[in-house]
């Protein structure tokens, strides 16, 4: 019975992640190109991955980044693995600070997400250089930094939604633990 409840919890969690990444990808490909400022668009997928890592830890962050990045690579990129690798690193990086920051604060978390997106862009830049794509050091200032700043604008909204979901999960986990305790006592 308890195993089934845990399974349902994990399924609903991964459905939320899947829907969030899908929504982010659709917005990025169909809507955000028209909201570009000097050609720079927000990277909502990485924002979702970073928020996820922050709320669920390094393993979940790694897998979320890997999955979301792989979908992005397969759909849009010539170099398969580029955004999967950068996403996995950004997600797990955020997961490692999960217990170290006050994650109930949307603003502290927003700042952390901003750093993660910048880290993601830096990894992409390094990989592009490795692959021989012309990406001069200046593009860190003209692409990576403004891209991370623009993305961070969306972080409070994304984080707030996911935090509410996480609160509900915590409440359900607590109910289940309490229920299991009572069964044990009985």
């Amino acid at each position: 019975m308890r195993g089934e409840a845990v399974f349902n919890l994990a399924t609903s969690r991964h459905s939320v992640l899947g829907m969030s990444v899908l929504t982010a990808l659709i917005l990025e490909t169909a809507v955000f190109p028209h909201l570009a400022v000097h050609g720079i668009r927000p990277d909502l997928v990485t924002v979702v991955v970073a928020c996820w890592g922050l709320l669920y830890g390094p393993r979940e962050g790694f897998l979320a980044g890997l999955g979301a990045g792989l979908v992005q690579d397969l759909l849009f990129t010539r170099y398969i693995g580029l955004f999967a690798l950068a996403g996995a690193l950004a997600g797990s990086l955020m997961g490692t600070v999960e217990t170290k920051i006050f994650k109930e604060s949307v603003w502290v978390s927003t700042a952390a997400v901003g750093v993660a997106v910048l880290g993601h862009e830096f990894v992409v830049w390094v990989l592009l250089r490795g692959l021989g794509v012309p990406a001069p050091a200046l593009s860190l200032l003209t692409v990576a930094l403004p891209g991370a700043l623009y993305s961070t604008v969306f972080a409070p909204f994304v984080y707030h939604r996911l935090l509410l979901f996480r609160f509900r999960e915590w409440a359900r986990e607590r109910e289940m633990t309490a229920g299991a305790g009572q069964v044990g006592q009985g």
Partner: peptide, 11 residues
């Protein structure tokens, strides 16, 4: 029908 979502490529 779609544009690439990142800031590094133009496709």
């Amino acid at each position: 029908i779609a544009r690439n979502p990142d800031n590094w490529f133009s496709r």
